[in-house]
Amino acid sequence: MTPTSDAPPLESKQPSVATLAPVSLPRQVVVCLAAWLVPGLGHGLLGRYGRAVLIGSSIYAMVGLGLLMRGHLYSPFDPDELLALRDVLSKVCMIGQMGIGLIQPLLRLLGVGAGFEFKAATYEYGTYFLVVAGLLNYLVMFDAFDIAKGRKA
């Protein structure tokens, strides 16, 4: 019996077996590292090019706008910022910003975002744009891991 044309496609919600096939463990590690270091690259390595471009462009746009708004980029190299027990909230911000990946230490080495420009009206916005960009990339990394494990398409 042939299906009628108005019958709902049964497989529309079911991802194919190929899309849910897990990749090998070393490749899962590479995908997660790539997703962390370069936002969007993890999805790109898994063949999700559209999502990779969307994720990468959005996160880098947030980083760029955060810096244009004169936000502060915390340094993962500065022992005072990294280890001092005072100012715990700034550690939370730093951990969030570390999610951005390679671009954070690179920009700090170039001296970008190093200053605390409290007088700028957009300083707080800029700093939290940078923090949220990193936090979003942590979520992206978990999503890439789920795809690599075969848990989602």
């Binding site: 529309s12 919600k13 991802p15 999502r51 969307l54 994720i55 959005s58 996160i59 746009a61 947030m62 706008l65 916005y125 744009f129 949220v132 979003l136 979520l139 992206v140 999503d143 989602k152 398409a153």
Partner: peptide
């Protein structure tokens, strides 16, 4: 701007949508 960029990323990684 924040809402647009954040919702773009969340839409790209959500489990609640397939298509």
């Amino acid at each position: 701007t924040f809402a647009a960029l954040t919702s773009t990323v969340l839409a790209a990684i959500t489990n609640e949508a397939e298509t």
